[in-house]
Simulated assay, not measured.
Amino acid sequence: MRRKNADQPGKYRKTLREQVRENKGLAVVYVVLRALVILTMVAQFFNGNFENVFLCLLTLLLFTIPSFIERTVKIDVPDTLEIIILLFIFAAEILGEIRAYYIQYPGWDTMLHTLNGFLCAAIGFSLVDIVNRSDRFTFSLSPVYLAVVAFCFSMTVGVLWEFFEWTMDSVFLLDMQKDTVVHTISSVMLDPAGGNHPQQIRDITDVIVVTADGTQHALGLGGYLDIGINDTMKDLFVNFIGALVFSVIGFFYVKNRGKGRFARRFIPRLITDSEEKEAEK
């Protein structure tokens, strides 16, 4: 965390305390979010919710990643991107999981997956753009190629996350892939002839589940319970939108040779040796 301007292009060698002191706006966001996480962790500890205590500890650890990268890998993370990442982590772990915003607000998960698509596209774009600008390589990639790579990187991360959710649900019987109540189903499994002709059941108002011991359970949900597929496809679709939006932004950023002020707020870049020496003076 630090002030980034034309006179001081990079100070990744500075300690976290020095960076916080130099950038008051970013520091306020960081301190407020960290304080809220600590208060939540204390409350969850006294309530005996030790799983949530672990989530709070994980959140505090994730908060340090952007500054850690800046101070060790010579990557300049823009302040705007860093604030978005911090808010994203807080919204996903504390508000989404512990405060159950995923359940209370149906659009919460959709918003975060859209933002995740945007952020992952920015990260994928910056990784290739850093190589493209490096003096160690002789090739030069076109703006279209960089935009496509950013888009594909974001979609790959989105798919891998859905794989992770499915694995957690299958192995540990969680419900990361949230279920959806639907009122119409169509399946070839219902074809009485055993053929490949999908049969429909419409206007479903309830489903009765019969277990191995013959016990019947009426779900009482007002329809048929879809197991995760609608949630997965929705997540991938909004990830697609977020990735596409940034890919377009990244395309014009490269086409204009990095002059766009808006795009620079979201694209990490490599700190050059000359900038490092200037910052250490």
Rank of each mutant, 00 (worst) to 15 (best):
L16M: 13
R13T: 10
L16N: 07
L36K: 03
L26D: 14
E18D: 11
L33H: 02
L33K: 04
L36A: 02
L26G: 12
R13A: 14
G25K: 07
E22T: 04
V31F: 05
R13C: 11
L39C: 06
Y30W: 08
K14Q: 10
E22G: 15
A35H: 04
R21F: 05
V31D: 02
L16T: 06
V28K: 01
M41V: 01
L33V: 00
L36W: 02
A27E: 05
V29L: 00
R13V: 07
A43T: 08
K14Y: 12
L26N: 14
Q19L: 03
R13W: 14
V29E: 07
V29N: 04
V42P: 00
N23E: 02
V42F: 00
L26A: 12
E22A: 08
R17T: 12
G25M: 10
L16S: 13
L39F: 08
E22D: 15
R21D: 14
V29Q: 04
R34V: 04
R13G: 12
K14V: 00
L36C: 10
R34F: 08
K24H: 08
T15C: 06
R17P: 02
L39P: 04
T15M: 01
T40F: 00
M41F: 01
E22I: 00
M41G: 10
V28F: 07
K24G: 12
E18N: 00
V31P: 05
L39V: 13
R17I: 09
V28Y: 09
R21L: 14
V37M: 01
G25T: 06
G25R: 07
L26V: 11
Y30C: 08
V31E: 09
A27V: 10
R17G: 10
E22K: 10
R34T: 12
Y30Q: 14
L16I: 15
R17F: 14
L39T: 12
V31K: 04
R17A: 15
R21G: 05
M41Y: 00
E22Q: 15
R17E: 12
E18Q: 13
Q19P: 02
K24Q: 12
R21Y: 04
M41P: 02
A27I: 10
E18T: 11
N23L: 06
N23S: 03
L39I: 09
V20H: 06
K24E: 14
M41I: 01
V37W: 05
T15P: 04
M41N: 01
K14M: 11
R13S: 13
T40V: 03
A27D: 01
T40K: 03
V28I: 15
E22M: 11
L36G: 00
R21E: 11
A43D: 08
R13M: 08
V32K: 00
V42D: 02
R21P: 01
T15L: 08
Y30I: 05
Q19D: 11
L33C: 13
L33P: 08
R21N: 12
T40S: 04
I38L: 02
L36E: 06
G25P: 10
K14P: 03
R21H: 03
V31H: 03
V42C: 02
T15F: 07
R34P: 06
V32N: 09
R13H: 11
V42R: 00
L36Y: 06
